[in-house]
Amino acid sequence: MKVSLKVWRQKNANAAGEFKTYASPELNPNMSFLEMLDVVNEELSNQGEEPIAFGHDCREGICGTCSLVIDGKPHGPHKGVATCQTYMRSFSNGDRIVIEPWRAKAFPIIKDLVCDRKAFDRIQQAGGFISVRTGSAPDANSIPVSKENADLAMDAAQCIGCGACVAACKNASAMLFVSAKVSHLGLMPQGQPERYKRVKAMVDQMDTEGFGACTVTGSCEAVCPKEISLDFIARMNRDYAVALIQGDPKQVVGGGAG
C-alpha cells in the first residue's frame, strides 16, 4: 500500500510552520504508524531533505512521548491506544493522511510534530505527590486499601501523561490529566493528609499554565489511550470545592526544640 502525507513542518518554536505533502514509498499494512514515518524519513534523508521530527520512545504505548494528531484525532483512528500502537492496516491504499502536532498554548511547538509538555511536569511539581521521605514508610500491609479503591486508583494512575486530552479538547483543557493524578492519590488512604492541599495546588498551577476549562465535551475521554474516565474530573471538582471553601490553612509560627 501507499499513502500520501500532509505533514506539519515547523523549523523551530519561533518559525512559521506550514503543511507539506509527501508520498510514501510502498508500505506493509503490518507496519506501525511510526514505522511508516521511519520509512518516509529514511527516504527524505536519502533525498537530502531533513527528516520529519516526531516524538516517540517506547513504541508500546506506555511512555507517553508520541503525540500525533492523525486526521484530526489525537493518537489516530483507534480507541484506547497511543500513536505508536496505530498500525497501517487501519488505513487504505491511496489515503491522504493529515499529521499535525498537539496544539495548545500551554504546549508550544518545538519543531515539526514535537511539542513541549513541561507544563504537565510543573503541575505535578506543585503537588502531585504524597510527602513521604525515603526510609520513613511503615510496613506496606499496615495500611490496608480496599480493593475497590485500589482498582479505581489504578484506573486513574494509568495515565501516561501524553497530553492527548489537552490536544483533543477544544479548550485545550488539562482537566482529565490533572484529575487522574488528583484522583489516584486522593483515593488512597496514604494520600488523605494532603488531599485538599494537593488538589488546590495542582488546579491553580494548571490555570497558571494557560490550559482552558472543562466544558464536558467528552473529547478527552474519547482519545485517551488509557480510556481514563470523565468521572475523575467530577471527583476532582468535588475535592477542589471543599478546598476552596476550607481556605488556606492557618499559618503556624514555629519555635526551636529544646
Binding site: S136, I143, A150, M154
Partner: peptide, 10 residues
C-alpha cells in the same frame, strides 16, 4: 513499604 507509602496502587 516505601512505594506503598507513596501511593503506588499495588
Amino acid at each position: 513499604d516505601q512505594c506503598a507509602a507513596q501511593g503506588v496502587p499495588f
